[in-house]
Design a protein around this nucleic acid. Structure first.
Lengths: 193, 193
DNA sequence: TTAATTTGCTAACAGGCGTTCGCATTAGTA
DNA sequence: TACTAATGCGAACGCCTGTTAGCAAATTAA
């Protein structure tokens, strides 16, 4: 798969991500993590700074990926409906590429301490604002019949962000198929799907 | 408001719910909880059995409320689309009546230990299955154009269950208005809203 | 009044927590 | 070869955790 092997630090991050996802950040101990890696708890500190250090890396790496994926959509010159479709697909792609990290990003960020927490909030707001912008565009040109773009974006993200709970890479739907399904459902509704 | 005053135990549950919601179960200490109530940590145990005892009560009380609300919809003789609308409204009503407890119910249940955890899983599955039944009905009689009822119900619940994150009782939309908005969005989509 | 119940305090327990320290071993590089 | 960096051990630290025990007030019921 990947040509260069993972550094020990990256291994730790990966295993920690898996534990944070399934047990939660607070309920995962450094001794659990060490056990999973076959080493002693103290040994972890040859590679990482602290427990929260790991969480920060996971959260902000995912934030970067979401931003990167969205930026490829942002300035395309297409109708709002189509742009929203592309944004959904981009979001779903990031979400499904690493469901474990996505789960941590979505559920464990609140265990960040300041100033990381504020920075995280800001990035998230920015991302949501960009989506609202698209919806506003669609409302303005008559594509969307809805009026409350805040509510729409919250609902949109809510339905997307549950994905990491049940998505399995070996499942029968590909990320792109999932994205298409969700786009259709949200844009056209159950009745006109 | 309520005629009979809250027992100390109910007070504890309520304050604990608020803390579990905002900080998470694992990150809330009994000393935090006691502080909030103006007593010492040890004093809590004159009223409750254990920390998880509180969590169990909150989770299963909410589960009961969701079931009760849904049961009033279940056997009504209306088209699937209308029944789904009613179910959404019922779900939203429970969610908004006590957003704090709803948040705990939705996010902290995984800290339940066996056998409560299995019982919780079963109840949840049952609830979701009932919703899938409605969607299947709608697919069978041509009301819904969609084919994958599992996916639909997951998306439906996902968008509803984020509500507790931002709903404020003093906000400008009533629970019924929220329910109507969400029903329209999901049934008709952004374009045909 | 007496008796029972509710409510709370203080102190302590046994164990778990994230983290540090000094030292050893291994692997890579020149 | 010798130097350096990566990797790990094991013990210990100071603190925090849920919970218990024994006792004392306060409240309520009879």
């Amino acid at each position: 798969m990947s040509s260069t092997p993972m550094s020990r630090k990256e291994q730790i991050d990966q295993v920690a991500t898996s534990l944070f996802k399934s047990r939660g950040f607070a309920a995962t101990t450094m001794r659990d993590l060490a056990l999973e890696l076959g080493i002693e708890a103290g040994s972890l500190y040859s590679h990482i700074k602290s427990k929260e250090d790991i969480l920060q890396r996971v959260c902000f790496k995912m934030a970067d990926e979401f931003n990167a994926a969205f930026n490829e959509v942002k300035n395309q010159d297409v109708p709002a409906g189509e742009k929203l479709r592309l944004a959904v697909a981009a979001h779903v792609r990031v979400l499904t590429k690493n469901p474990q990290a996505a789960g941590v990003f979505l559920n464990e960020w609140r265990h960040l301490s300041e100033p990381s927490l504020s920075k995280f909030h800001d990035m998230r707001f920015q991302y949501e604002e960009s989506l609202r912008e698209i919806v506003r565009e669609g409302i303005a040109n008559g594509e969307f019949k809805v009026t409350d773009e805040k509510f729409v974006v919250l609902t949109l993200l809510s339905s997307l962000n549950w994905l990491h709970m049940w998505y399995k890479p070996e499942g029968k739907m590909s990320p792109d198929e999932i994205a298409e399904f969700l786009s259709n459902l949200l844009l056209n509704g159950l009745k006109n799907f």
